[in-house]
Amino acid sequence: MINKIVQSIAEALSGIKDGSTVLMGGFGAAGQPDDLIEGLIEQGAKDLTVVANNAGAGRVGLAKLMEMGRVRKIICSFPRSAGSTVFEELYRAGKLELEIVPQGTLAERMRAAGAGIPAFYTPTGAGTKLAQGKETREFNGRPHIMELSLPGDVALVEAWEADRWGNLTYRQSGRNFNPVMAMAAKLTVAQAHHIRELGDIAPDNVHTPGIFVSRVVHVVRGAPWN
């Protein structure tokens, strides 16, 4: 019997190695796998490359992982936002590498990785400083830049529902980067608010088919979201 549901966050995150590229779902706090990120802090992997839309806020979650010196590089679209103090401090001190990627290019680079497309051309960023060092080619009279796919070793995603085959649904705009990250990583770990019996998620409503998911752990967000 296939059963991707594991009993603890520690089990869900076991085996993540130093030097891994970790894709972290979420846009702001929506769809962010908070408990898995906290679990990664406990798990201990270091020298990480983290791919996330934002570079953490406050001193918890991703910001805490960075503050502990466990992140070598961050790849994101919007590093500076309310409360991104830890990022600012580390970046200014030269203790963190940064790669800025336009938000849509970031999503598409991971989608491409999951879909077996090694690179693609996009008009986004052409003629700007983010085009520096990238191949430029004209299509239909318009310049495009080549962007490489962005695969992960690990993806951490937040789902609303999951079953033992790893089929997932997401909640509202919490879907954001989660589906493309799930398909782009070798090991995809989902924290799910609800665990459903196999077959209870209507097949038409599955957002991420279980083929893209390695492990599921049940994490209830608590009232009033039961």
């Binding site: 919007f78 938000q103 849509g104 986004t124 700007t128």
Partner: peptide
């Protein structure tokens, strides 16, 4: 060197 581009370029 660390400006936030978000979705503006897209």
């Amino acid at each position: 060197s660390a400006p936030a581009v978000g979705g503006a370029m897209d």
